[in-house]
Computed example of a mutant assay.
Amino acid sequence: MSNAAFVASLLAGAAAGTSTDLVFFPIDTLKTRLQAVGGFFANGGYHGIYRGLGSAVVASAPSASLFFVTYDGMKSLSRPTFDRLIPSNGQMAETATHMFSSSAGEIAACMVRVPAEVIKQRTQTHQSDSSLQTLKKLLRNQNGEGVRRNLYRGWSTTIMREIPFTCIQFPLYEYFKKRWAHAANRDQIAPWQGALCGCVAGGIAAATTTPLDLLKTRLMLSKKSVPVLNLARDIYKQEGWKVFLSGIGPRTLWISAGGAIFLGVYESAHSLLS
């Protein structure tokens, strides 16, 4: 990746992440409260839907930048390898490249995203008054598990959710863009067309991975660490299988519309900066 491409990915990713979080934060709050123990109204209902916005805004630019710098860099680095491994099928090699690169991007982004998500979701469910107070409580290590474990609670489940999500979203996104450009007999599509491709791809990925998102939310809101399989079993026994689809509407709406803005802003900013 050239220096110019690196800077373009860095700045375009920051613009995309910040704009999406600012616009769709209330829907994310509603989704979190639907998934929390006790249900929607017990965790705040429609009140204070911008609670936790500070932690989201602080983390959105660096996490999105990390994602796109890693994603764009790994695409150019890994494509020759996948072409050698799958020489007879160019489409399969391209899909494998996008899946691998987006997974690497998500792991990099989660270094920033997970602590911000822990702070944000605890604040959204009224477990504290502000993002700063939530951070102070975590740093005080009241449960004795250590600051790192408190800030990165739900790390494994977040990765477990993000990799399937991104392995669905980005290959679909790139495929839709390619097909649209081919149908229009052009090399590239316009940014607004990229936004529509991101909207559809994000909605499909969001709906499919909602059960993993619920597990991630419950882990982040838990006061102590809980093994994921034990948590899933307990939720199923106590609340039934339908609870794993809690928040599927707001999540799909938020990520569909958010995907349009996120990838639309990214495409616009990247083409401008490039």
Results as ranks from 00 to 15, higher is better:
238 Q>D: 13
265 V>S: 11
260 A>G: 14
253 L>H: 04
218 R>T: 00
244 F>M: 02
222 S>V: 00
211 P>A: 04
227 P>H: 06
249 G>L: 09
225 S>V: 02
228 V>P: 15
261 I>T: 13
234 D>S: 12
242 K>E: 07
241 W>T: 00
211 P>M: 03
218 R>F: 07
218 R>H: 11
236 Y>A: 08
209 T>K: 03
258 G>H: 05
252 T>S: 01
231 L>H: 04
223 K>M: 10
239 E>K: 03
253 L>Y: 04
225 S>A: 13
221 L>D: 04
262 F>W: 08
223 K>W: 12
214 L>G: 02
230 N>H: 10
229 L>N: 13
259 G>H: 15
225 S>M: 06
208 T>N: 13
244 F>T: 00
254 W>A: 14
259 G>S: 09
265 V>H: 15
263 L>R: 11
226 V>L: 13
250 P>D: 03
226 V>A: 04
235 I>L: 13
217 T>S: 13
238 Q>M: 12
210 T>C: 03
220 M>W: 14
215 L>I: 11
236 Y>W: 13
260 A>H: 09
256 S>E: 02
259 G>T: 13
249 G>M: 12
226 V>K: 05
213 D>A: 10
217 T>Q: 14
246 S>V: 00
218 R>E: 07
257 A>V: 15
233 R>V: 08
263 L>D: 09
253 L>W: 03
225 S>P: 08
217 T>I: 10
256 S>G: 01
250 P>K: 09
227 P>C: 09
212 L>H: 08
216 K>F: 08
249 G>A: 06
210 T>K: 00
217 T>M: 08
238 Q>H: 08
228 V>D: 15
240 G>M: 01
262 F>P: 12
263 L>I: 15
240 G>N: 02
233 R>P: 12
209 T>C: 00
250 P>S: 08
217 T>R: 07
227 P>W: 11
248 I>V: 07
252 T>K: 10
258 G>M: 11
232 A>H: 05
218 R>L: 02
219 L>H: 10
227 P>V: 10
228 V>K: 15
223 K>T: 06
